[in-house]
Amino acid sequence: MGEHRVSVLCADLRLSRGDFDLDVALSVAAGEVLALLGPNGAGKSSALRALAGLLPLTAGHVRVDGDDHTRTPVERRPIGMVFQDYLLFQHMSTLDNVAFGPRCQGESKADARARAAELLGHMDLAGYTRARPRNLSGGQAQRVALARALAVRPRLLLLDEPMAALDVSTRLHVRGRLRRLLEEFDGATVLVTHDPLDAMVLADRIAVVEGGRVVQEGAPAEVARRPRTPYVARLVGLNLFRGRADGTAVALDGGAVVEVHEAHHGPALVAFPPRAVALYRRRPDGSPRNLWELTVDGVERFGDQVRVHLTGTLDLAADISPAALAELGLVRGDTVWAGVKAAEAECYPG
């Protein structure tokens, strides 16, 4: 978190278009990477475009290093932006793509190219300066786009779904590399993604955006462990329930009671992973603290596990092995006992 560092970006983004309405306040410190995570249509891309000046604000402000840029035209903002498909200029070489920004800022052709060559060299692309963008791999194109954005010496770096254009097999490697490159940048970085893994790996802090509002903000580990909305819970793969805690017993809004290991009082959220749920055909004897009789709503393959969706006094997902499924012989509509150990259930103020 950036409390000990100076805020580079301080923004209050408010805009409304038709029945969509965005109201997001952001603050990002020097060297910090903030990820805006959210479903499609949540407004995270609009927020990014508003920061860039590509979308006019209805109200609010954008300040970078203390200077107000709310009304600064796009081309004069201290920003660099990496677009979803990278949008490298196809009619220019890689080198000229990167030199484009410095040229626009008035640098001489030679200086601009020298800076571009240096940046490309730094990104292990020295051998591709004369290449046309269409001949680059996805990961290379991403680095060229990053180099192009950094070439204008921005204070605010904006990345719009930087991983979306890559195929799954290369993502792991490219993501790690992007992480290291972003760590070197000393300004503020805001990246937009709908993939929780990108957010977890690339960002220092995550702001979850839903319906035009930030619904949860915190360090990646915090968000992953203690989701605050069903959307986040689903993203990070947790069962999430809202209720009222009285000691270690939490009475859920739906009527069920969950025993947790940590005592709380008042409104609370309870989360536990699907793999913590054990299923039984018959009521088990040495019973765990939490046991509910539920109905099977559906069964689907989930990685090397099988995810069983259960419904009844509470709706939850349970991950079991295919062998266990075969043994239980579950089909939709069957009744089953679901047990969760209190030690597995995380409880935090709601």
């Binding site: 796009v74 081309e75 920003i79 932006m81 626009c104 954005a149």
Partner: peptide
Amino acid sequence: EAAATLGAG
């Protein structure tokens, strides 16, 4: 838009 973010009028 990309060109504009790079400072092009």
